[in-house]
Design a protein around this nucleic acid. Sequence first.
DNA 1: ATTTGTGAAGGGTTTCACAGCA
DNA 2: TGCTGTGAAACCCTTCACAAAT
Lengths: 261, 261
Amino acid sequence: MTRPRPARLVRSERATRDGIPEATVSRLPFYLQALTALAERGVATVSSEELATAAGVGSAKLRKDLSHLGSYGTRGVGYEVQYLIYQISRELGLTQDWKVVIVGIGNLGHALANYGGFTSRGFTVAALVDADARVVGETVAGLTVTGLDSLDQTVSSLGIQIGVVATPGPAAQEICDRLVAAGVTGVLNFAPCVLTVPDGVMVRRVDLATELQILAFHEQRRAAGRLAGEMPAEPQDLSEALGAIGEPRTTLTKSRAEAAG
Amino acid sequence: MTRPRPARLVRSERATRDGIPEATVSRLPFYLQALTALAERGVATVSSEELATAAGVGSAKLRKDLSHLGSYGTRGVGYEVQYLIYQISRELGLTQDWKVVIVGIGNLGHALANYGGFTSRGFTVAALVDADARVVGETVAGLTVTGLDSLDQTVSSLGIQIGVVATPGPAAQEICDRLVAAGVTGVLNFAPCVLTVPDGVMVRRVDLATELQILAFHEQRRAAGRLAGEMPAEPQDLSEALGAIGEPRTTLTKSRAEAAG
DNA sequence: ATTTGTGAAGGGTTTCACAGCA
DNA sequence: TGCTGTGAAACCCTTCACAAAT
C-alpha cells in the first residue's frame, strides 16, 4: 500500500525553461507602476535599490524577480526605465489591448467603470451589463448599460476576454457561467463567493471585507502584545508581517455548546 | 569577511508558541464566509472536505490551517459550524467592533461606504471625509461627509482604528500621515502607490488594475500555449496557477534604444 | 567603484500519508 | 468505519553573499 511516492514533478523543469514564479508575476504590476512614475518625472536610469524602494520591496527580491524575465540591466549602472517598462509590459501581455465587460452596475460597478486605472493600462471597458431594468439604458462612463439578455451576444461579438463580476453573491455563479459560455477566459470576481469554472478559465477574487478582516487580525494582535508588555519593533512591511507578538493564547475552556449558543 | 551568517531568528520560536502563519490568516476570512453561508442554510456540522470545497481550497490545507487555531473538530464527525464560526471570529478579532474612516468619497469611496460586507462583519464605518468642498455636506450611506480639516479631530475623538484611503494617488501619502498621527494603526490603501508608515502601523494595498494585469498575464500565457500546440489541463485554482505552459520565450533582440523610442 | 545577476542557504507553505480518536 | 490532526517530505519563495560585468 505504500507505493514509493509518485514523482509529481513536471513543473520545475518547465519553470527553468520559461515559467515565471507566481509570486514574481504578482509583483510585476507594482514595478511597472513605480517605473511609470519615474518615467513621468523624466528619470532615465534607476538602480535596483531605488526601484525597490519605490515599489516597496527589498532590492534582492527585485533583482531576483527581474532576473526571471531576462538580463535587462547593466552592471554598475542600473536599469533603463523605458526599456524595463517595455519588457515588463510585454511579459504581462499589456502590449495588446484586453476587452473587459463589467457585470453588475451598482455602486461598485459604477466605480469600476469610472476607474481610470483600467483604461490607462491596456484595458478597455467595452461593455456594461446589469440585470436591473432601472439601470439598463443609463449612460455610465460613456457607455450605455445593457440588459442581461444581451450578455452572450455582447461578449462573443465584441470578442471580450475578461469579465468583471460585481453582482451580489447569489447571482455571481450564474453570471460567471454565462460569461464563460460566451467565451470569456478570465474572471475578476468581487462577489463574496467562490466561483466554479472549467479548466482553462482563471478566476481571481478580490474581497474588500477580507482585507479588513486581515487588518483586524493584526490590529488585535498588536493590542494584545502591548498589553502583555512586549513591544518589539513591528514589521510594517506587509510581506513579512507575520507572527509578530505572542499573546498568551488563553485557550478558553468554554464548552462548545455554550460558545455556540 | 565571511562572518558565520547572523542568526537572524527570533520568530520561529514565537511561531511555535502562538503565531499563526500569515498564509493561514489570509484564508481565515474565506472559511468564515463559507461557514456563515452554511449556517444560514441550517447546516450544523461540516467535514473538512465539504468546507474546503465551499471555500475553494484543498481539504489538507484547510485542516492544517484550522489546526493552528486549536483542535476544534471531532474525529470521525467534522466541525460544528457555529462553534468554528465563533473560534475564527475570535482569532480574527471580530468579536470586537472596529471603527473605520473612509477618506476620499469619489466613485470608489461611495461604493465602499455603501458596501454591505463591511457593516455586516464587525466593522462600523464611523466617518466619511473628503477634500472636495462640493462633496462635503453630502449624505452618503447615512453619514454626512466632512472636510479634511476635521480628519484629526474625527479620528481621535471617535477612537477610529482603521483608515481606508480611497483618494487619488498623489494625495494618499499625506492623508495616510495624518491618519497615523491621529491614532490610526491600520490602513487599507486603494490608491496606486506605496504608503510609508512608521513601525507598528500596518498597510494593506488593494489595487484593481494590478488584479487585471495578473489576469492578463495568464490570459496571454494561455493563448501562447494554445498556439504552440500544447494544451494540458490548466489549473483553474488560483493558488497553484503557476508556470502553466511553456511559451518559447521569443527573446526578441530588439535593441534597447529602439524599444525605448 | 558600482551594481547586476545568481548559486546557495534558509524559512515558509503545501501536500502527502497515516496515526489517533470518535 | 470515518474523519481529524499532524509529522515528514516536497515544493516554493526569500534572503544572503559574492562573482561577473561595466
